[in-house]
């Protein structure tokens, strides 16, 4: 289990490689889903067509949040994610084959095709997500409550976006978690955009971490989409939660590299042409290469490993049968 890393010391090389590897696996996955998603929606674009229908919110650019935070977690810890959940699911070790089958709407999926990509539940690693802004936070409180009652030091990481920080559920959850000193780490992914509305037009404070003070908990903002910064801050927050000292709030200034959903023309968004310059993965790769933590051979091996893993997941998904329409009313009640 990773421990708190002093701010002024370099992280261990194997850990840094792991962070990079996780980010590459996520990006490889999102690129492949994007490709599969668009492959059979032409001519034109019909959202309901193809082997991956419906809304698709991909997390390219937000990998540092997932890799940095989930590196501190074990399968018995909970993660609740948003409508944009793949990066967190992958980093927390959700079963990739069954997750992919769910995204493809197959019977072998995590939810037998009932949930789809916004409703991924893997109880083996206490992972869940919700398509409703900020409403994934309250259940995380309950998971944390149960962990504490069970007498473990497991924690719940409750992730949401910067747009959600203006929802009532966000504020109610921070207050209750702090009041009851629940082992929760709140993580706000600030990707600058609530669909088409920039945070400057939605949020009265420049830094959502400041809001932590209103609830008597520590708050910290991590700039520059820096995976190592996320890792260090999450380490402090997770350690605090495990020690029984209550919740923390982190905000990560991250990047929505692609549209809100696939098919989003992003005509509202300036600077699209130079967006790739802010991509956190090449930047981290260059840094690790420069510092001798990685070499080109290792980079290629990591990429090949990720491509292989994602390829197997997609193959497994496509090999899984479609759910039988006659079972459409199953699973309403236990």
């Amino acid at each position: 289990m990773a421990t708190i890393a002093p701010q002024d010391e370099l992280l261990d090389a194997p850990l840094r490689v792991d962070l990079y590897r996780t980010m590459v696996l996520i990006r490889t996955y999102e690129e492949r889903i994007r490709q599969e998603y668009h492959a059979d929606k032409t001519p034109g674009f019909d959202i309901g067509k193809g082997k991956v229908p419906g809304e698709m919110h991909l997390a390219a650019g937000q990998e540092p949040v997932a890799a940095g935070a989930c590196a501190h977690l074990r399968p018995s810890d909970a993660v609740t994610a948003t409508h944009r959940p793949h990066h967190l699911a992958i980093a927390h070790g959700v079963d990739l084959d069954r997750m992919t089958a769910e995204i493809f709407g197959r019977d072998g999926g995590l939810g037998h095709g009932r949930g789809g990509h916004m409703h991924l539940f893997d109880p083996a690693v206490h992972f869940s997500c919700s398509g409703i802004i900020a409403e994934g936070l309250p259940p995380a409180l309950g998971q944390a409550f149960a962990f504490r009652r069970r007498g473990t030091d497991d924690v719940a990481v409750a992730v949401t976006g910067e747009g959600a920080a203006n929802q009532g559920a966000f504020h109610e959850s921070l207050n209750l978690a702090a009041l009851w000193r629940l082992p929760v780490v709140f993580v706000v992914e600030d990707n600058d955009w609530g669909i088409s509305v920039p945070r400057s037009a939605s949020t009265a404070v420049a830094d959502n971490a400041l809001r932590a003070a209103g609830y008597g908990m520590p708050g910290e903002r991590i700039e520059d989409n820096d995976v190592e910064g996320v890792y260090r801050a999450a380490g402090r927050a997770v350690a605090r939660a495990r020690a029984g000292d209550g919740p923390s709030l982190l905000e990560v200034h991250t990047l929505r590299l692609w549209g809100h959903f696939e098919g989003d023309p992003q005509s509202y968004r300036p600077g699209l042409a130079t967006l790739d310059e802010a991509d956190p993965i090449p930047r981290y790769r260059r840094r690790l290469l420069e510092e001798g933590v990685l070499d080109e051979g290792r980079v290629e091996a990591i990429a090949a490993e990720a491509a292989g893993r994602v390829g197997r997941a997609v193959e497994a998904a496509l090999a899984s049968p479609e759910p039988d329409p006659a079972t459409a009313t199953a699973y309403v009640f236990a």
């Binding site: 309250p138 259940p139 995380a140 309950g142 962990f147």
Partner: peptide, 16 residues
């Protein structure tokens, strides 16, 4: 109510 209703759901998911 949103926070404690959701807390109940999360606790139930974990077996309470």
């Amino acid at each position: 109510e949103t926070a404690f209703m959701g807390l109940a759901t999360g606790a139930a998911v974990e077996g309470m």
